[in-house]
Amino acid sequence: MRRSFVIVQQRCFSDHILNVERRNFAKYLEMNSPKTLNALSLKMMDNLINEISSLSVDDKCVVIKSSSKHFSAGHDLKELKQNEACSQASAVFTRCKELMTALKLAPVPVIAVIDGVALAGGCQLAASCDMVLASRKASFGLPGIKIGLFCTTPAVPVVRCLPTKLTFEMLCTGEPVCAETAFKHGLVNKIADGSEQLHEMCDELVAKIANHSREVIALGKSEFYNQLSKSTLEEAYNSATPVMTQNAELEQCQEGITAFFDKRKPKFSS
């Protein structure tokens, strides 16, 4: 069932660093700090966490993008200067961990849309999303080593998307990889030729997700990442089997099965 593209809500935070828009059953979070290349300051991370943690029942997807050319250049180095004391660095990296965890715990798919650079914490943000769409202008890097700061925490999700040796090369050289390389190795889902096609691609993906049951996707996403954490195939199946049984007994699934035999489109209530 195709959903119409209707703008439900638009707003900007008073500091203008994050714009929020709801349309087509999706919540769009647009980072809007071009002068800092959308640095993941404490304020930016707080805003992102608050929005991801306050989804409505009508939000079937979250899209994180940029209002300007670049996605994010990572942490705000002003917050990591020594005169801010060690506690500030701890607060920054702890908050960052909370943001990346919130993305995985969100009950709906989170999509990153990247048309420029995604560096350090920005690359971490992209890799922590469930799906990544990028234009051919996009690049992904872990350049912290260039200022004497190894990208230890950004590497956590990146190495779970890219091969170990490629990730370690990025960490040790600080050199980025292009969108094609990121796509080839699994960090990027799809590549667009330009900005316009990139946003059309995003809207199409959101529309496809919005056609399906939010309840079922929430259950499936949670177990998808849970079974991935298991150390053996048997443990993964032991975790996934009761969840799929639970899913089969849901009203949404029974409606889908009935619709299949009735040769009609299912009408999901949620």
Score class of each variant (00 low, 15 high):
91 A>N: 14
139 S>H: 02
118 A>D: 03
72 S>T: 01
75 H>S: 11
98 E>V: 06
66 S>E: 06
74 G>W: 02
89 A>C: 14
88 Q>T: 14
152 T>M: 09
84 E>P: 00
81 K>H: 07
82 Q>F: 11
65 K>T: 13
70 H>S: 14
88 Q>L: 12
155 A>Q: 13
86 C>N: 11
144 G>V: 01
121 G>H: 12
108 V>I: 12
72 S>N: 02
147 I>P: 04
112 A>I: 02
138 A>K: 01
91 A>D: 08
66 S>G: 04
65 K>D: 10
120 A>E: 13
62 V>L: 10
107 P>H: 08
113 V>P: 05
65 K>E: 07
76 D>E: 14
85 A>T: 13
76 D>I: 00
152 T>R: 13
149 L>P: 01
122 G>T: 05
152 T>S: 12
94 T>D: 07
114 I>W: 03
156 V>Q: 13
73 A>F: 04
63 V>F: 10
106 A>I: 03
68 S>H: 13
148 G>A: 02
128 S>R: 01
64 I>T: 04
156 V>Y: 07
82 Q>N: 14
72 S>G: 06
85 A>D: 15
136 R>Y: 11
121 G>V: 05
138 A>E: 04
155 A>E: 11
137 K>Y: 01
79 E>K: 15
107 P>T: 04
77 L>M: 10
128 S>T: 12
64 I>F: 11
134 A>D: 08
116 G>M: 13
118 A>W: 09
148 G>T: 00
81 K>Q: 07
118 A>H: 10
84 E>F: 14
133 L>D: 07
91 A>F: 04
144 G>M: 07
114 I>N: 10
108 V>L: 08
104 K>R: 12
140 F>N: 01
70 H>N: 15
122 G>V: 07
72 S>Y: 05
113 V>A: 09
77 L>K: 11
80 L>Q: 12
96 C>R: 07
105 L>Q: 13
153 T>I: 05
146 K>S: 12
137 K>S: 12
70 H>T: 05
69 K>L: 10
110 V>W: 11
139 S>C: 14
129 C>I: 00
125 L>T: 05
157 P>A: 02
149 L>V: 15
146 K>L: 08
154 P>T: 05
157 P>C: 12
145 I>Q: 08
113 V>G: 03
125 L>D: 04
130 D>M: 00
80 L>D: 10
90 S>K: 10
150 F>M: 14
77 L>T: 13
147 I>T: 15
154 P>W: 00
67 S>A: 14
133 L>I: 00
83 N>D: 13
101 T>F: 02
146 K>I: 04
94 T>A: 13
70 H>M: 03
73 A>W: 10
150 F>H: 14
76 D>A: 08
111 I>Q: 06
144 G>D: 01
73 A>M: 02
85 A>G: 13
142 L>Q: 11
79 E>F: 07
137 K>A: 12
123 C>S: 12
107 P>E: 06
103 L>P: 00
127 A>S: 10
156 V>W: 01
110 V>G: 04
154 P>H: 01
128 S>W: 02
125 L>F: 02
81 K>M: 09
89 A>I: 07
115 D>P: 08
70 H>C: 03
61 C>P: 04
110 V>L: 05
108 V>A: 11
